[in-house]
Design a protein around this nucleic acid. Structure first.
Lengths: 205, 205
DNA sequence: ATAAAATTTGAGCGGTGGCTCAAATAACTG
DNA sequence: CAGTTATTTGAGCCACCGCTCAAATTTTAT
């Protein structure tokens, strides 16, 4: 019946509100310095309410990363699938990722920060859930590179290693961003990075 | 007199022992999840003793990063200054950094992790002391790149932006390391990274 | 050997923050 | 509206941890 559907919709809305509130706080303070009390205040709920939507602090954090990452990957997938021609998929991937981060500044801080440290994290389940997310991301980048490289005049490199190199190039560059002016868009830096990377992997002649 | 000198030596030895113990724990658990009690246990001192050597947890952490970074920079400087010829300094920088990290696995974890998040950190003094460290590092890389690029057939790029790109390339690659086998050395990966980077910045022809 | 000075020790204090749960409130139902 | 169920609330519990300081121990001086 319609009633049930509305309830479900409202539940999701509230859940999403909590997630974006958490995103703001986590991105500003990092996981450890963020308190549930602060997320609750930001989301305009009482602290206890958060526990009706998430098992605890870690679950909330991981849910946020997982869901936003899915969004990112979906977007990248959609954009990249359009591109054809040697190097075009890679070019498109870089542009798409920068564009996504421009629109999701808060999330990107969490994504980058976590990506660089998840490897040696303490809690078991946290490591597991996170590594899945980042493996999926790297796999996608590696596949894109693989498809693209064999199409043009590129060296025969290990796609996975190359994917790490590209991800690193993007991430670190992106780390300067918080310091630069608000209006500056990451998207505009895409050509610079694309050029370095594509030249870097092309065949010598 | 000789007596005073010995005291001083012993003081420094104990201090260094605490720092390397802290290095082990911090690298394994990260700043927040590391407790003073655990560092004390690892260093075989009582908790209170740590406070005779450092003002507190943050001071210990920052001292560790500052002192090891100085060591790293000194080593890089020494190695790079030997190199001559287009691209040679950069090649040498990459090899030296990988070699240093091979020998300082624990420190490198802290260095990389912190480098990626210090930009938006909470505590004022911590940010200040850290940003100085990383500015010095990036400055050095930028200077090396600048010296080198004008010597060969390279594009006219902004050295500072390019330094961030290079640092990112190295760091992210290095992030895979903890997963790979113990015997695998970062040093052996240097050629792969060097090639991508040098090709990436060379003039089109 | 003994007193004085320096160093180490670890139990305990105080503040913090994740999480719970009984009570309050709101939403449905007939 | 009354009764029932679902949701929200926030004060308080409790475990944790950085840090202190009086007492114990070691080192130095005489």
């Amino acid at each position: 019946m319609a009633k049930l559907a509305r309830k479900e919709r409202e539940y999701r809305t509230r859940r999403a509100e909590i997630i974006t509130a958490a995103e703001r706080v986590f991105s500003a303070k990092g996981f450890d310095k963020t308190t549930m009390e602060e997320i609750a205040r930001e989301a305009e709920f009482a602290e206890g309410t958060l526990y009706n939507f998430f098992k605890g602090k870690i679950d909330l954090y991981l849910s946020l990363i997982e869901e936003k990452s899915e969004e990112l990957l979906g977007y990248l997938h959609k954009q990249v699938s359009k591109a054809v021609g040697a190097g075009e998929k890679i070019r498109c991937l870089i542009k798409a990722q920068m564009g996504f981060f421009d629109k999701n500044r808060n999330f990107f801080k969490i994504f980058v920060r976590e990506r660089n440290s998840f490897e040696w994290m303490a809690q078991k389940d946290r490591t597991k859930r996170l590594s899945k997310v980042y493996q999926t991301y790297i796999d996608f980048v590696a596949r894109t590179i693989k498809d693209d490289l064999k199409r043009g005049e590129f060296r025969n490199l290990n796609p996975r290693e190359t994917a790490y190199a590209l991800a690193g190039l993007l991430n670190s560059f992106v780390c300067r961003w918080p310091k630069s002016s608000k209006k500056e868009r990451l998207f505009d830096q895409a050509p610079f990075l694309t050029e370095i990377f594509l030249k870097g992997v092309q065949k010598s002649r």
